[in-house]
C-alpha cells in the first residue's frame, strides 16, 4: 500500500519513464546548423582567397622568392622585386608605433582616469568613436594637406615620404588605439583599484603599479592589431604619394634617412601591379606580394598573441 515514489508534479511511477525521455529539439538543432553554416562561409571564403592567391603566386614563390623579396621595382615582370615596398611598410609601421602608441595610450588613460565626466568629455568620446569609422581615404587627404604640403611640416617630413605617410597612418589608427586602451583599462577590476588606494597609494601609483600592468595584455593586443591594419592600408598612401612605378633609390634596411625620401609601400605596390596589363605583374607578382604582406601581418598578429599570453601569465602569477 505504501507509495513507492513520491509523485512529482503529476508524475506517477507509470509515466515517469516516458516524461523523462529526450524529445527532439528541432529549433535548437536548426539554430546550431545556421551558426555552423555562417562559420563555414567565413572560413570557406578565407580558404578560397588564400588558395587563389598562393596558386597565382606560385610561379614566383617557387622559382625566385629570394630575388623577389630582395629585388627592386623594375619594369620587367621577371626581375621586379619588393624590397623597397617592404622597407617602406616597415618604416611606416615603426613610425606609427612611435607616434600613435604613446599618444593613444596616454589619451586613453586621461579619458578613463582623469577626465571629469562632463558633456564635453562624452562629446569627445563619441567623436573618437566616430573617427575610428572615418574612411581611410579621408585620412589620406588630411595627410596630403598637412604632412605632405603643410607649411613648415613639409620641410620636416620631406614631402612625399615615409614620415608623411607614417604620420597619416598614425592619425588613422590613433582612435582605434585610444578605444582599445580605454576598453582594456575599463576591464581592470575595481577591487584592484580599491586595494591600491586602500593601502595609501596615490592615483598615479595606482595607475602605474596596478591598472596599467593589468591592462597591458589588452592594450598590447589592440595596438599591435592597429599596426597590422596600418600595414595593409593603401588608400591614404596613394594620396600621400607613394611611388608605385619605378623608383631609383634603394637604401639599406637600417638607413633611417629614407624616412624623408621618396618611398614605396606594399599595399600600393600591390594595387598598382594589379592594374598592369602584363600578366607577370597583374597575376603572379601581385599575388606574390600579397602573400608576403599577409605573412608580414600574420607575423605581427602572432607576436601580439604571444606577448599577450606572456603578460597574462604574469598577471595570473
Amino acid at each position: 500500500m505504501a507509495i513507492a515514489i513520491k509523485p512529482v508534479g503529476g508524475l506517477t511511477p507509470a509515466n515517469i519513464g516516458e516524461s523523462l525521455r529526450r524529445k527532439p529539439d528541432l529549433k535548437g538543432a536548426l539554430f546550431q546548423f545556421v551558426m555552423l553554416f555562417s562559420l563555414s562561409i567565413s572560413i570557406g571564403v578565407l580558404v578560397v582567397l588564400l588558395y587563389t592567391v598562393v596558386s597565382d603566386a606560385w610561379p614566383v614563390l617557387s622559382t625566385r622568392l629570394g630575388d623577389f623579396v630582395t629585388g627592386t621595382l623594375a619594369p620587367d615582370a621577371g626581375r621586379a622585386g619588393i624590397s623597397q615596398g617592404l622597407k617602406g611598410t616597415f618604416y611606416l609601421c615603426v613610425i606609427v608605433a612611435i607616434v600613435a602608441f604613446p599618444l593613444g595610450i596616454a589619451a586613453a588613460i586621461y579619458l578613463e582616469e582623469y577626465a571629469p565626466r562632463t558633456r564635453l568629455s562624452s562629446f569627445i568620446e563619441v567623436n573618437i568613436r566616430n573617427l575610428a569609422g572615418v574612411p581611410s581615404v579621408v585620412y589620406g587627404i588630411l595627410g596630403l594637406a598637412i604632412f605632405v604640403n603643410g607649411w613648415g611640416i613639409s620641410a620636416l617630413t620631406g614631402g612625399r615620404s615615409p614620415l608623411a605617410g607614417g604620420l597619416t597612418l598614425a592619425a588613422l589608427v590613433l582612435p582605434v588605439v585610444i578605444i582599445t586602451t580605454q576598453e582594456a583599462i575599463r576591464a581592470v577590476p575595481s577591487a584592484l583599484r580599491e586595494a591600491g588606494f586602500g593601502v595609501g597609494a596615490t592615483k598615479w601609483e595606482v595607475i602605474k603599479d596596478h591598472i596599467l600592468p593589468y591592462a597591458a595584455p589588452g592594450i598590447l593586443t589592440g595596438t599591435l592589431l592597429s599596426i597590422a591594419r596600418a600595414a595593409g592600408e593603401a588608400a591614404p598612401l596613394l594620396l600621400v604619394g607613394t611611388i608605385t612605378g619605378f623608383i631609383s633609390n634603394s637604401p639599406g634596411w637600417f638607413d633611417v634617412r629614407q624616412v624623408q625620401d621618396k618611398f614605396a609601400a606594399m599595399p600600393t605596390i600591390i594595387t598598382s601591379w594589379a592594374k598592369q596589363p602584363e600578366e607577370g605583374f597583374r597575376v603572379e607578382n601581385a599575388a606574390a606580394a600579397i602573400v608576403v604582406l599577409v605573412a608580414f601581418v600574420i607575423l605581427l598578429n602572432s607576436a601580439a598573441i604571444l606577448l599577450r599570453n606572456r603578460f597574462e601569465a604574469k598577471r595570473a602569477g
Binding site: 577591487a191 593601502v199 595609501g200 597609494a201 595570473a316
Partner: peptide, 30 residues
C-alpha cells in the same frame, strides 16, 4: 595620508596579482 593610517579590508579578498611578499611590501614601499 588618511588611508595609510586608516587601513581597509574589503568584502572580497583582493590581493594584488603579485607575490605574497610584494603584496605586503607594496604599502610600505610607496
Amino acid at each position: 595620508e588618511v588611508r595609510r593610517r586608516i587601513g581597509m579590508v574589503f568584502q572580497k579578498p583582493n590581493p594584488f596579482p603579485k607575490s605574497i611578499f610584494d603584496n605586503i611590501t607594496y604599502g610600505p614601499k610607496i
